[in-house]
Simulated assay, not measured.
Amino acid sequence: MPEHKHEHEKKTFWVVLLTAVTMVVEIIFGLITNSMALLADGIHMGSHVLAIGLSWIAYIVVRKVSKNEKFKGNSDKILSLSGYSSGLMLLLFAFVIMVEAVERFFNPVDIIYREAIFVAIIGLMVNIASAFLLHHDHEHSDHNIRAAYLHVIADALTSLSAILGLTAAMIWDIPFIDTIAAIVSSLVIVRWSVGLLKDSGKALLDMKNARAEHEHHHH
Rank of each mutant, 00 (worst) to 15 (best):
V109Y: 00
M1S: 15
A131R: 01
G165D: 10
Y113E: 02
L166R: 01
F132L: 13
A181S: 10
D173C: 05
I180N: 02
S80C: 08
D142Y: 01
K64Y: 13
Y113W: 04
A58K: 05
H219N: 03
W192E: 12
N107P: 00
L38S: 10
R211Y: 08
E213W: 04
Y84M: 13
H219T: 00
D142F: 00
N107R: 08
E115H: 06
K70P: 00
F105L: 09
T33Y: 15
G201K: 03
K64G: 00
R211G: 02
E115V: 13
A156Q: 03
S80K: 10
H6N: 12
H151D: 09
V49N: 08
N74V: 03
H8W: 05
L90P: 01
E215W: 11
G42C: 04
H214G: 05
Y149D: 03
V16Q: 01
H6A: 14
H8M: 11
K202T: 11
E213K: 11
S47Y: 11
L54Y: 04
N127K: 12
Y59T: 02
H143N: 14
F106V: 07
I163Y: 08
T19D: 09
I177M: 08
F132C: 06
H135G: 06
M207W: 03
K202L: 12
A94Y: 09
W172A: 07
M23F: 04
M98I: 10
F95D: 00
M45T: 14
I43F: 13
I183R: 02
Y149R: 00
P2G: 07
K77Y: 06
D142N: 09
F95L: 11
A129C: 06
L205V: 01
L166Y: 04
H214Q: 12
L50I: 15
V96I: 12
L196K: 07
K64T: 13
H140K: 08
R146K: 04
S161P: 06
I163K: 09
L92S: 09
S80D: 13
H8C: 10
T33A: 14
V190P: 02
P175Y: 11
H136S: 07
L204V: 05
E215A: 13
L166D: 05
K5D: 14
S161N: 02
E7L: 08
I128Y: 02
L124C: 10
D155Y: 07
P108V: 00
S130W: 00
T158P: 03
I57E: 06
I171L: 14
R191Q: 10
V184P: 03
L38I: 14
N68P: 00
I57S: 10
V184T: 05
L79T: 07
V184R: 02
H140I: 00
M89G: 14
A20R: 05
